Amino acid sequence: TTYKLILNGKTLKGETTTEAVDAETAERVFKEYAKKNGVDGEWTYDDATKTFTSTE
């Protein structure tokens, strides 16, 4: 399943996707990605669109 991440950081904005077996796995991948890029925001998830959003 393809999951999408929308980053709305103070210094980094953008989108990326990952293939994962479930939302929990995708969330771990995306949170590590955000951390590596210095984004520490509030997380939301929309199951209908398989989209995570992190907003600082």
Results as ranks from 00 to 15, higher is better:
residue 46 D to I: 04
residue 17 T to D: 04
residue 49 T to D: 04
residue 4 K to H: 13
residue 21 V to P: 15
residue 8 N to F: 11
residue 24 E to A: 13
residue 8 N to I: 14
residue 33 Y to C: 05
residue 23 A to L: 12
residue 48 A to Q: 11
residue 18 T to R: 04
residue 45 Y to R: 00
residue 18 T to F: 14
residue 13 K to R: 11
residue 50 K to H: 11
residue 47 D to T: 08
residue 8 N to W: 13
residue 4 K to R: 13
residue 17 T to W: 14
residue 4 K to W: 11
residue 42 E to P: 05
residue 53 T to L: 06
residue 53 T to Q: 07
residue 38 G to L: 05
residue 7 L to Y: 12
residue 16 T to H: 14
residue 3 Y to C: 03
residue 3 Y to R: 03
residue 13 K to V: 11
residue 54 S to T: 15
residue 28 R to Q: 11
residue 3 Y to W: 06
residue 30 F to K: 01
residue 16 T to E: 05
residue 7 L to S: 02
residue 38 G to H: 08
residue 50 K to E: 02
residue 39 V to R: 02
residue 25 T to N: 07
residue 33 Y to P: 00
residue 28 R to G: 06
residue 21 V to K: 13
residue 17 T to F: 14
residue 17 T to P: 01
residue 53 T to E: 05
residue 19 E to P: 04
residue 26 A to M: 01
residue 36 K to V: 12
residue 3 Y to K: 03
residue 33 Y to E: 03
residue 20 A to C: 09
residue 10 K to F: 13
residue 27 E to F: 15
residue 14 G to L: 15
residue 14 G to S: 14
residue 40 D to H: 13
residue 41 G to W: 15
residue 42 E to D: 12
residue 15 E to S: 12
residue 34 A to V: 06
residue 29 V to S: 05
residue 8 N to E: 09
residue 40 D to Y: 13
residue 45 Y to L: 01
residue 31 K to P: 01
residue 56 E to N: 05
residue 48 A to D: 11
residue 41 G to A: 06
residue 44 T to N: 08
residue 51 T to S: 04
residue 37 N to V: 15
residue 29 V to N: 06
residue 26 A to R: 01
residue 35 K to G: 06
residue 37 N to Y: 15
residue 15 E to D: 05
residue 24 E to R: 11
residue 54 S to Q: 07
residue 51 T to I: 06
residue 29 V to F: 15
residue 24 E to N: 09
residue 11 T to M: 12
residue 19 E to T: 14
residue 44 T to C: 09
residue 19 E to F: 15
residue 1 T to C: 13
residue 4 K to Y: 15
residue 38 G to W: 05
residue 10 K to I: 14
residue 51 T to E: 03
residue 28 R to L: 10
residue 30 F to W: 01
residue 3 Y to G: 03
residue 39 V to I: 13
residue 16 T to P: 02
residue 10 K to G: 07
residue 6 I to C: 07
residue 50 K to C: 05
residue 56 E to R: 04
residue 20 A to F: 06
residue 24 E to Q: 12
residue 15 E to G: 07
residue 53 T to S: 07
residue 23 A to C: 14
residue 42 E to F: 13
residue 31 K to W: 05
residue 19 E to L: 14
residue 30 F to L: 06
residue 49 T to F: 04
residue 6 I to A: 03
residue 29 V to D: 04
residue 40 D to C: 13
residue 28 R to W: 07
residue 55 T to I: 09
residue 25 T to Q: 12
residue 47 D to P: 14
residue 7 L to P: 00
residue 1 T to F: 13
residue 4 K to P: 04
residue 39 V to L: 09
residue 45 Y to Q: 00
residue 14 G to D: 12
residue 26 A to C: 00
residue 39 V to D: 03
residue 42 E to T: 14
residue 23 A to I: 11
residue 24 E to H: 10
residue 24 E to S: 11
residue 3 Y to D: 04
residue 5 L to F: 09
residue 2 T to W: 13
residue 11 T to V: 11
residue 53 T to M: 09
residue 55 T to H: 07
residue 23 A to P: 12
residue 51 T to V: 06
residue 41 G to L: 08
residue 10 K to N: 11
residue 23 A to E: 07
residue 14 G to P: 05
residue 43 W to T: 01
residue 11 T to K: 12
residue 23 A to V: 13
residue 40 D to E: 13
residue 26 A to V: 01
residue 3 Y to N: 03
residue 28 R to A: 13
residue 55 T to Y: 08
residue 39 V to P: 02
residue 22 D to H: 03
residue 15 E to T: 14
residue 39 V to Y: 12
residue 38 G to T: 02
residue 36 K to M: 13
residue 52 F to D: 00
residue 25 T to I: 07
residue 32 E to W: 06
residue 21 V to F: 13
residue 48 A to V: 11
residue 5 L to P: 03
residue 36 K to I: 13
residue 32 E to T: 06
residue 35 K to E: 10
residue 37 N to D: 02
residue 43 W to G: 00
residue 47 D to R: 08
residue 32 E to S: 06
residue 54 S to I: 15
residue 44 T to S: 13
residue 25 T to M: 11
residue 26 A to G: 01
residue 30 F to V: 00
residue 4 K to I: 13
residue 26 A to F: 01
residue 13 K to H: 12
residue 36 K to A: 14
residue 20 A to M: 02
residue 46 D to E: 06
residue 52 F to A: 00
residue 40 D to M: 12
residue 18 T to A: 09
residue 50 K to F: 08
residue 19 E to Q: 14
residue 29 V to E: 08
residue 22 D to N: 11
residue 7 L to D: 01
residue 1 T to M: 11
residue 49 T to H: 05
residue 41 G to Y: 06
residue 18 T to L: 14
residue 15 E to I: 13
residue 42 E to V: 14
residue 44 T to L: 07
residue 17 T to K: 07
residue 55 T to L: 06
residue 22 D to F: 03
residue 45 Y to C: 00
residue 16 T to F: 15
residue 5 L to M: 04
residue 26 A to K: 00
residue 56 E to V: 08
residue 51 T to R: 02
residue 49 T to C: 04
residue 28 R to K: 12
residue 6 I to T: 03
residue 2 T to N: 08
residue 31 K to R: 14
residue 36 K to Q: 13
residue 35 K to C: 10
residue 4 K to N: 06
residue 17 T to A: 07
residue 7 L to Q: 01
residue 40 D to R: 10
residue 26 A to W: 01
residue 39 V to N: 04
residue 52 F to C: 00
residue 54 S to F: 15
residue 6 I to M: 05
residue 40 D to G: 08
residue 14 G to K: 14
residue 45 Y to P: 00
residue 6 I to E: 04
residue 29 V to W: 14
residue 13 K to I: 10
residue 41 G to R: 02
residue 10 K to M: 13
residue 12 L to P: 04
residue 1 T to K: 10
residue 35 K to Q: 11
residue 36 K to T: 10
residue 24 E to W: 09
residue 38 G to A: 06
residue 34 A to R: 02
residue 5 L to G: 02
residue 47 D to L: 07
residue 26 A to N: 00
residue 43 W to N: 01
residue 20 A to H: 02
residue 25 T to G: 07
residue 31 K to T: 05
residue 30 F to G: 00
residue 43 W to A: 01
residue 28 R to Y: 07
residue 28 R to F: 08
residue 50 K to G: 04
residue 43 W to M: 07
residue 9 G to Q: 04
residue 29 V to P: 00
residue 29 V to T: 09
residue 55 T to W: 08
residue 7 L to C: 08
residue 23 A to R: 14
residue 7 L to N: 01
residue 17 T to C: 13
residue 41 G to Q: 04
residue 25 T to R: 06
residue 22 D to E: 03
residue 35 K to S: 10
residue 44 T to G: 06
residue 12 L to V: 14
residue 41 G to S: 05
residue 1 T to Y: 13
residue 3 Y to H: 03
residue 6 I to W: 04
residue 36 K to G: 06
residue 15 E to N: 07
residue 36 K to Y: 10
residue 20 A to P: 01
residue 29 V to K: 08
residue 18 T to Q: 06
residue 27 E to W: 15
residue 14 G to Q: 13
residue 19 E to A: 08
residue 47 D to K: 10
residue 41 G to D: 04
residue 39 V to Q: 04
residue 44 T to A: 09
residue 37 N to H: 15
residue 54 S to N: 12
residue 14 G to H: 14
residue 11 T to F: 14
residue 6 I to V: 11
residue 45 Y to F: 06
residue 35 K to D: 06
residue 38 G to F: 06
residue 18 T to N: 02
residue 48 A to K: 12
residue 12 L to E: 06
residue 34 A to K: 01
residue 38 G to Y: 04
residue 42 E to G: 05
residue 23 A to Q: 12
residue 24 E to V: 11
residue 5 L to V: 03
residue 54 S to M: 15
residue 30 F to Q: 00
residue 49 T to Q: 06
residue 34 A to C: 12
residue 27 E to H: 12
residue 34 A to T: 06
residue 48 A to W: 07
residue 29 V to A: 09
residue 15 E to L: 09
residue 9 G to N: 05
residue 3 Y to E: 03
residue 20 A to K: 02
residue 25 T to S: 13
residue 41 G to K: 02
residue 8 N to S: 08
residue 5 L to S: 02
residue 42 E to W: 11
residue 34 A to L: 10
residue 29 V to Q: 08
residue 10 K to E: 08
residue 30 F to Y: 01
residue 37 N to I: 14
residue 16 T to C: 15
residue 18 T to S: 04
residue 48 A to T: 12
residue 43 W to H: 01
residue 33 Y to G: 01
residue 5 L to D: 03
residue 16 T to S: 09
residue 51 T to K: 02
residue 28 R to T: 08
residue 3 Y to I: 04
residue 56 E to P: 06
residue 21 V to T: 11
residue 4 K to Q: 05
residue 25 T to L: 06
residue 21 V to S: 11
residue 36 K to P: 01
residue 11 T to S: 12
residue 51 T to F: 01
residue 54 S to R: 03
residue 53 T to C: 07
residue 28 R to S: 08
residue 11 T to N: 14
residue 29 V to H: 11
residue 17 T to S: 10
residue 20 A to Q: 07
residue 22 D to S: 08
residue 24 E to G: 09
residue 52 F to L: 00
residue 30 F to H: 00
residue 32 E to H: 06
residue 37 N to C: 15
residue 33 Y to I: 07
residue 35 K to I: 12
residue 34 A to G: 02
residue 40 D to A: 11
residue 23 A to S: 10
